[in-house]
């Protein structure tokens, strides 16, 4: 039976799609069969980040409405084996992602996948609610910034009350993924620290992804950043995948790269 993981945040632009793409790729690299689903109807973007935008023929809504089979709509990744992408519809109405339809697709996928990663749209409207409803686990992507932390807290409240697990009296396993972290600004007192965010949200930390040029470079190229094994962000995502699988990994990239004596003395 597949684990269903929702990548969510409330706030937009914090790195949900980047995270979905990298985690799904990382899990597939570990030998699991993984499907990554874009729930952002009308604003499809996962295909671009995964670099398969020209191979989209059928989408999620086509499958729900019976216009295509799941087999026809799933795009097989060309780099990593056993990784499949289901694109969001760019034209259909948001309401087309019905709870029943999504449940049918997830049930069918669960038969042949180990992990199903649901890339949630921003906000707490219909698309986001459907994306989280069937989840076993949730990765709450948060930036060390006030509006993002507040929205994450709101989303945590919804995960605890508006999901299938919640309706069965169980709970969705929650993980915090802090992205765009700048250790230097944290040290200067200009940015919330990982401890600050953890103290406020009070959920286990899955990983800290440093602010990194490689994220934009990877998205420019349509490569999940986890494949950039020399980059800090790529390595941080690989660590997060390991922790998701229950492996112990020390958190890295939490301290700024050491500077010279003079710049330290005068507080560069």
């Amino acid at each position: 039976m597949a684990r269903i993981i929702v990548v969510t945040s409330g706030k937009g632009g914090v790195g949900k799609t980047t995270t979905s793409a990298s985690l799904a790729t990382g899990l597939a690299q570990r030998g699991f069969t993984v499907a990554v689903l874009d729930f952002d109807v009308g604003l499809r973007n996962l295909d671009l980040i995964m670099g398969c935008e020209r191979r989209v023929v059928y989408d999620f809504v086509n499958v729900i409405q019976g216009e295509a089979s799941l087999h026809q709509a799933l795009i097989r990744d060309k780099r990593v084996e056993n990784l499949f992408i289901l694109a969001a519809s760019q034209t259909k109405d948001k309401e087309a992602l019905t709870f029943e339809g999504v449940e049918r697709v997830l049930t069918e996928l669960a038969e042949r996948c180990d992990y199903i990663v649901c890339d949630s749209p921003a906000g707490i409207e219909h698309g986001a609610m459907v994306a989280m409803y069937f989840a076993d686990e949730a990765i709450v992507v948060t930036n060390p910034e006030v509006s993002s932390v507040r929205d994450s807290d709101r989303v945590l409240g919804l995960l605890q009350s508006k999901t299938r697990k919640a309706s069965q009296g169980e709970s969705v396993r929650e993980h915090l993924l802090l992205t765009r972290y700048d250790p230097l600004r944290v040290e200067r007192g200009e940015m919330l620290s990982v401890e600050d965010v953890q103290e406020i949200l009070a959920i286990p930390l899955l990983g800290v992804i440093p602010e990194s040029k490689s994220v934009l470079q990877a998205s420019n190229a349509g490569e999940p950043v986890i494949l950039e094994t020399s980059s800090d962000a790529g390595q941080a995502y690989a660590d997060a995948v390991a922790r998701l699988l229950g492996e112990e990994r020390e958190h890295r990239f939490l301290k700024p790269v050491k500077k010279g004596f003079f710049s330290r003395l005068f507080g560069g």
Binding site: V149, R150, R188, E190, S193, D196, E199, G267
Partner: peptide, 26 residues
């Protein structure tokens, strides 16, 4: 943190952010 920061007694903006968040979230 350089030596000048020791003369700064003002709260850092990160501390202000944390306090504001703790209040609004609670």
């Amino acid at each position: 943190m350089g030596i000048f920061s020791y003369f700064r007694s003002k709260k850092t903006s990160a501390q202000i952010a944390k306090n504001r968040l703790q209040i609004i979230v609670a």
